[in-house]
Design a protein around this nucleic acid. Structure first.
Lengths: 336, 336
DNA sequence: TCCGTAAATGTAATCGATTTCATTAAAATG
DNA sequence: CATTTTAATGAAATCGATTACATTTACGGA
């Protein structure tokens, strides 16, 4: 149906090789033949078949992005940074939504093995370090955002979870809170346990006993946060603050509180993580930890493309970016 | 680097054709040879090269989705519907963010011409009907969400813009509003002018004179809505309600009002469109029009895949889904 | 056991581009 | 103007799978 390179060649009265040269290098061809060829290309509306091109060139100029949940603005803002930087370098960016299912994540990773993508950027992956490293060992190009994976071939950008968790806790403690809930994400996720680690360290630093029952697991989703809160309420524990491992879960906390008639922040302080777009609009506005999401996406793509092209590149593999605690209304209440 | 089919064949002691048969049809092979082949496949960690496969089979099992703004939950919720339905049918879904730039939209459409995708679903496209129809005429598979394009080969799903606009207006009018601002999106966008049409019709039906200066253009973004409001305020007009063509712009209205100390809904009623996830969280909660986004995505994919496979399929091409006016706090105030 | 048929397997063509290598044409040099 | 050098072009191999067609093997019936 579509015109092929031989059709263009025939129409222009040249060989396929010449057509290819015109379209690719644009050097080593007379301007006269170039014009002939371009005319034929236009008239036939010729577009080189990507499969044929990819097969021959052994590359696709495609970058895949595996996001856990495309409905979560944390991911989409990072993706904006990726998309813009990659687009500027003639790469196409394809976004895949793994929907928090590691099975889907794994499935989308096969895009590397079947060479549909030259490289894949994983944002806050669920798969284990081992599994990801194994891929990189096999020579596939992988970059990771939101977590540090110790592998010489995997560029990473992330923020220091432990550090900002402690900041959050210091803030809550300074408001006079002592019984603070930690609302975890998936317990297996690195983000989860690093944030938990910060929580625990802060307690220890301040000689506050740790009550395991104040740690509850969610799934980084609104509903997960909501249900976790309900479980906590059911246990009849005493607590005056909730530190949620991300903003989505904090939204669930809001909802659970609304149902119970608990007012934020006077009865319960809430802090989230991610500075999700939504967080400044909710009432009360949600205290959270901001990460330079767009920048994180842009930074890693630049480094990643260099690596894929085996250019000589600055050898820096790990980028730790600063986060910032944003104290808003949801935690702005002094218990003392 | 990776194993190729000949490697697998050699290792298993069979021909490449047999390997291919095992991996594809799985019939017409002895169970003994199948085992041999699968063993070799596993040992070599063989994954068929997608480019070679696509080239030979003239199809990719890839569906592209072109969204205008991946940060806008309207798009991402539709995409969830697409992704799940397509995934179940062994298609891979690749999401592209056109960032409200028709140039990018056009660029991503070339995925069809170079056969990177078997088909492309455009959500609320910016390109003209003509341009899109032209592609379909050439035989490319295109589906459209959020707008009706009159072309026998383009399946569409959308809601009736004019109808729900009138509903919104009737609601505002019934609250006693007479001077109602219409905050338009891109004026060229079909969604924009259909919603405007509903606005005008409602005015006419109720014998309310139309004041052109009460219509201001935004760009479907928060900042666009914010700036449009500022322009309106600067003109010193009288109005008591704003009907924004989508929720994102309504957020901009909120911000502009906050800066001016105007309270919603007592001084200004606001209604948006899309029932963006964010809209129920803002304060006051935003009245809006809900569309069954997930369903719209799922419905169109099902129909689209049938069409791409030239299966005998129900010939229905156009799906009009119902929308629902959600009256929340932002417009719940009676002026009378 | 032998033969006819069906099932399994192999050989080679094919998809549509790029690219190496060979050839021809043009430009430069003396 | 002849010859060398360089640039432009073409012919054919190549990428790695699938698949049409040819061939071999297995099976069943007489």
């Amino acid at each position: 149906m579509d015109a092929k390179i031989v059709d263009v060649a025939a129409k222009a009265g040249v060989s396929p090789a010449t057509v290819s040269r015109v379209l690719n290098q644009a050097s080593g061809v007379t301007s006269k033949t170039r014009d002939k060829v371009m005319k034929a290309v236009d008239e036939l509306n010729y577009h080189p078949n990507a499969a044929a091109k990819n097969l021959r060139q052994q590359k696709t100029m495609n970058i895949g992005v595996i996001a856990q949940d495309i409905n979560n603005a944390y991911f989409t803002e990072i993706i904006k940074g990726i998309e813009n930087m990659a687009y500027a370098q003639k790469y196409r960016v394809f976004i895949c939504d793994a929907e928090n299912q590691s099975e889907k994540e794994r499935e989308y990773l096969t895009m590397l093995m079947d060479r549909t993508m030259d490289g894949v950027i994983m944002i806050a992956p669920q798969l284990s370090d081992e599994e990801i490293c194994e891929m990189a060992d096999k020579g596939y190009y992988i970059a990771v955002i939101g977590r540090n994976i110790e592998h010489p071939r995997i560029p990473c950008v992330y923020t220091d979870n432990v550090k900002f968790s402690r900041q959050v806790m210091e803030h809550l403690l300074s408001c006079g809170h002592r019984d603070i809930v930690f609302l975890n994400g998936y317990p297996e996720a690195v983000d989860s346990y690093e944030r938990l680690e910060g929580y625990l360290k802060a307690l220890k630093d301040n000689q506050i006993p740790f009550h395991p029952e104040l740690v509850e697991n969610g799934d980084f989703n609104e509903t997960g946060g909501y249900e976790a809160m309900k479980r906590l309420f059911a246990k009849n524990l005493h607590f005056t603050a909730v530190f949620a491992a991300n903003d989505e879960m904090a939204l669930g906390v809001y909802q659970a509180c609304a149902e119970r008639g608990i007012s934020i922040p006077s009865q319960l302080a809430v802090v989230g993580v991610d500075n999700n777009r939504i967080s400044k609009y909710v009432t009360p506005s949600l205290s959270t930890v901001n990460q330079p999401k767009y920048t994180m996406g842009a930074i890693i793509v630049e480094r990643f493309i260099d690596q894929m092209n085996e250019n000589q590149f600055e050898d820096k593999r790990v980028f730790v970016v600063d986060s910032e605690l944003l104290i808003r209304e949801s935690s702005n209440f002094n218990m003392k």
